[in-house]
Design a protein around this nucleic acid. Structure first.
Lengths: 130, 130, 130, 130
DNA sequence: GTGGTCTAGACCACC
DNA sequence: GTGGTCTAGACCACG
């Protein structure tokens, strides 16, 4: 499990943590019963204030993705995989829809847009392989 | 020229205004010499605080997209079209790349992503016609 | 609208704030569209750290009881009254059920319990009048 | 003697243990001279960390409800029954008063409250029989 | 060791 | 002025 924070992401740090944990659950890198890294551990790994991690974990708690086990840590709940898979798709779809809407409003036709998408996908493929 | 603000967009309101003005210039809905709607007019049309519009216009001024004409208002500059066309593609490509990167990181393969793109494009088409 | 914090309540301060706002909505002391006291104002009134108030408001936001109006404050949502009325009853019922369960487990019969309830209710009545 | 832990009870686990032991004494399910289950035994039965049970027993020791018998375990003291009977009513009355106060503050009138109490008592009766 | 709460104070974006 | 985020550091309850 690798987590990485990009401070110039626009997204708040705690939100990046939330999303990455949910994505890790959705992709089964984290499974129900697994312990999430402790607040202190995670804060060291990400070079981030422990309160920021705690804030992220509180959000995950509220969403029922993790549950606290007193004195032990926080573990992935049984309902987490389903919720995270749904949430992952929803989050990506929302961002994608917003971008495509803007592109369409800016008079790009669907051909132009498809072209940009393909170009960016190709770039990603190169990165993966490279 | 139709402007629309989506408060739950992630983007700041003033930023949405900036982008939409630039897109309007890029698509020649606004041409050099055209007057941009006054701060008051625009704020009424978008149901937004006038200061927010003023802030957006300040940004456009700084980018040389508009220029103030004493006693008249703000007009599109001669250099605006070129700048906006360049900026438009850059801005869209950046957002698109960010979304696709996230999608790819979340274990979606390029086929899934293309599927989502097509689905959203189809939705947009329906909206346009509807 | 009077809010009061009891530090020796067992309940966390932010939780007391959450509950009191929800109760105020449930009893129509706060109505949809009303602005909740600002974080800074509330923190002064309760002699509490602003972050603690912000934490409470964040919870109310997540529950859809308030919505932020940028640069203006946070206002009660249209859905808030229904949610708060339900939540109020649920919270009270849960606490009541827990106490009565304990009482029943401790071999008090329903007569004893009713007696205690009546005694406490009478005490409350005296306080109200007094 | 049946003990049951409800983790989502609001009360700390060790506190639930303390209260249940005292209630058992008050109702003469445990009598002076009886041995309390060993820390290990109790922790297995409740599926709880042994330290948590030890912490509860420490509290009971401090209150003079149990006393250590070298090489044997911990037994109920002669003074325990009187203390527990008094404490039991006090503890229940305190929790009850707190709940009723909140209910009353939330604009429920005494009729509503009595109604909720009766409903919950009926639920308890059903559970006992069922 | 774990998470939970609270305080204090900083900086930002937005209105 | 408003809320939102982040940092730093303290204290507590629990295991």
């Amino acid at each position: 499990m690798f987590f990485a924070i990009d401070p110039s992401n626009g997204l708040a740090i705690y939100d990046q943590i939330v999303r990455q944990v949910m994505f890790a659950v959705a992709s089964e890198a984290l499974r129900p019963g697994d312990l999430v890294p402790s607040v202190r551990d995670m804060s060291r790994r990400l070079a981030v204030n422990p309160n920021t991690v705690a804030r992220a974990y509180r959000d995950l708690l509220a969403q029922g993705v993790v549950a606290t086990v007193r004195g032990t840590g926080m573990e992935i709940t049984p309902q987490a995989p389903q919720r995270c898979r749904e949430a992952r798709l929803r989050m990506i779809r929302e961002r994608l829809a917003a971008v495509l809407l803007e592109a369409s409003r800016s008079q790009l036709d669907t051909g132009d847009i498809r072209g940009m998408v393909e170009k960016e996908l190709a770039k990603l493929e190169r990165h993966k392989r490279g």
